[in-house]
């Protein structure tokens, strides 16, 4: 008997997309602006977020979820900002999925409905690109020590991100970082993406980044996956 061909037409990540859509609706309804942060391991996500939370919580309610493979170290570091922080230990999983975010939000009373919720993804430039987490903004962090061709090596994660932040700017001179090369490589894989440079250590560029972020929150956003 010859097999018959049946049309199915189903997105393989449909379940994740549905959970993410529900989360996005829930965040919008409660006025929470959600930023997810992706980067390679060691590009300074935790330090960048610690500084961001510390500065932003002077005027806004902030909270953070942090994904990590095995430890709770990042959550402890972020907690120094005094903001409510929850850890998602992913075990062997190399990325966060929407359902993990949903579960982490359960019974999280001390976070209330923050103005800004940050989700720190697992350090990985490949796997997180496929999973919508219900965020308003996907931020990709690249440090000056990583090489200016990173966007060309990992075009998908850059293309699916909304804004790029260059970290560890205080080291730029020491590593002969070429801003123009990195910026133009970003524009190759994601034309029009806004790029900012910061140093969480010295505070350089942090005001500009926060001003940009706060300005974005007050704009009406289009829902886009």
């Amino acid at each position: 008997m010859t097999p018959r061909l049946v049309e199915v037409r189903q997105n393989v990540l449909k379940h994740n997309d549905e959970v993410a859509r529900a989360l996005r609706q829930r965040f919008h309804d409660s006025g929470v602006f959600v930023v997810s942060v992706v980067s390679s391991p060691g590009s300074g996500k935790t330090m960048f977020l610690e500084k961001t939370l510390t500065l932003l919580r002077r005027d806004y309610r902030v909270a953070a979820l942090v994904g990590d493979l095995a430890t709770e170290n990042d959550a402890q570091r972020l907690a120094r900002s005094q903001a409510p922080v929850r850890q998602i230990v992913t075990g062997t999983l190399c990325h966060l999925e929407a359902a993990m975010v949903e579960k982490a939000l359960d019974n999280w009373d001390d976070a209330g409905n923050p103005d800004f919720l940050f989700i720190e993804n697992v350090g990985n430039l490949v796997c997180p690109s496929s999973y919508d987490l219900g965020e308003d903004l996907r931020l990709i962090l690249v440090s000056v020590t990583e090489g200016e061709d990173k966007p060309l090596k990992y075009p998908t994660i850059f293309n699916t991100s909304d804004v790029a932040v260059i970290s560890k700017m205080d080291l730029a001179q020491a590593v002969e970082f070429d801003w123009q090369a990195l910026e133009s490589n970003i524009q190759v894989v994601r034309p029009g993406m806004h790029v900012m440079g910061v140093s969480a250590k010295t505070g350089q560029g942090m005001d500009e980044w926060l001003e940009w972020l706060v300005g974005l929150r007050s704009q009406p956003l289009t829902v886009d996956n």
Partner: peptide
């Protein structure tokens, strides 16, 4: 993944197709 129009070299941020991860038949 060079997002430039192959004809006129204009940057092309708008993706119409290419994100698919879709089961379409069995």
């Amino acid at each position: 993944m060079n997002f430039l129009c192959p004809e006129c070299q204009t940057p092309t941020p708008e993706v119409l197709q290419g994100r698919e991860l879709e089961m379409f038949a069995l």
